[in-house]
Design a protein around this nucleic acid. Structure first.
Lengths: 229, 229
DNA sequence: AGCGCACTGTCACTATAGTTACAATTCAGT
DNA sequence: ACTGAATTGTAACTATAGTGACAGTGCGCT
């Protein structure tokens, strides 16, 4: 059992976008030095004890990530799927965590404490470059999200968000997003009714198929066209 | 003349939020190793030659920063005032610049090339910590901006953006923001008319005073109340 | 199978922002 | 002081999203 999970972790890390161009040794070190933990629905991903500068890699399951604004509004900003990294923002700075992740499905995470990271870095200093790489990617996608909300109307915004969420899904099949319309609306700043209305139109036009708590993207380029105005 | 500019640069660096808690030696090294450059209105801040990993510190003037979205929409995301840092996102990753800054007033910038940074780091390795510090701050403010546009209605959003822009202005006087209503609207995703309407209401209530291309914030806590809904 | 909950589909009504257009004001350069 | 460009103030009208409410449907649990 433990064996299986470690194998899964290794596989996920090797295929993760931010690690796949690095030597496999790196993924192995991370699995060796890290600690696997399971979380149930509703539980938060956070480092135990005083090690607040750790990293988490999602191995299996699904989490929703939130940003806690200055005035305690919680705004959902995205998903964390297998391969995603959480908690990196604090690595460099010692500031409080910016993003909180809550399990939406029972999930397995690989916790990599700060000391574990240092041990990995001894043999594979390129780990820092990989970490810098996804910090950059995170900054980019946050800027993109802000830019989308600023410059797009709700209709385009919905399409853009669907595409942004599906990005990274490299299978040939139509990507499936697991989220309620309520949540989707919260994520992009429109009401459920508006989401529902536009999704219905998209479905009528054959761009997507909506199900119970799920949205299947059938025509990515059609959606892109809508997102572009 | 050159002397004066260097003195100004030193003063700006020493008082910059991201450097003021570090030894003054750091600011001195940066001024020594960096290169001052002047830009006129409309010119872009970008490193010359192949050194794309440099940093810029705004010494004097004002720039507007834009994010170039994937589909070449340009979205204005904020201001760069004296003390602000530009170009740090690439430092860690080698990716393309995420943010482009354009001069809104004739400005003086301190260009710190990658090699200059390395020279500074030889004597003052804590420079990395300072850089990490503002990278974190940039991530935070980007997330905050995204959260604001997502969860706030235009009226609240305008108030929140005014406050966010004024933050960092530590003088006792009422902060003054230099921006046209057109630009402000573009920045937060509403039309000029909507901006104009709400600003008029704010002014009537004594929260702000609007001028030609400028907005003076008279009652910060009142604005905060509006921003909070 | 049956129950309860969460999610979706839809309605009438209201509020708010976008559109288009034009006049009035401020500023900078001649 | 004069001119032209940029900016602000304002209006009538339209389009779109928000509100609140309720019925129908899928899903998990016992």
């Amino acid at each position: 059992m433990k064996r299986n999970e470690q194998d899964l972790a290794l596989q996920v890390l090797r295929e993760a976008a931010w690690l796949k161009d690095y030597p496999p040794k790196l993924a192995e070190s991370l699995v060796t030095e890290g600690r696997l933990m399971r979380l149930n629905i509703g539980e938060w991903a956070q480092a135990e004890g005083d090690d607040r500068n750790g990293l988490f890699v999602v191995i299996d399951g699904l989490l929703h990530s939130y940003y806690a604004a200055l005035d305690d509004r919680m705004t959902m900003i995205g998903f964390a799927e297998p391969g995603s990294v959480l908690g990196h923002a604090t690595r460099y700075s010692g500031g409080p965590r910016l993003v909180t992740a809550v399990c939406a499905e029972p999930s397995t995470l690989l916790e990599i404490s700060e000391s574990a990271l240092d041990r990995v870095a001894e043999r594979s200093p390129e780990i820092w470059r990989a970490i810098a790489g996804f910090a950059y990617a995170a900054m980019r996608s946050t800027l993109q999200m802000a830019a989308d909300v600023i410059s797009l109307r709700p209709r385009e915004r919905i399409a853009a968000r669907l595409l942004a969420t599906a990005r990274g899904d490299q299978s040939d099949k139509a990507p499936v997003i697991k989220i309620s319309q309520e949540m989707l609306g919260e994520m992009i700043g429109v009401t459920r009714k508006t989401v529902n209305f536009h999704l219905s139109v998209f479905e009528r036009d054959g761009l997507i198929r909506v199900g119970y708590g799920r949205i299947e993207l059938c025509d990515l380029s059609g959606l892109q066209e809508i997102a572009n105005g």
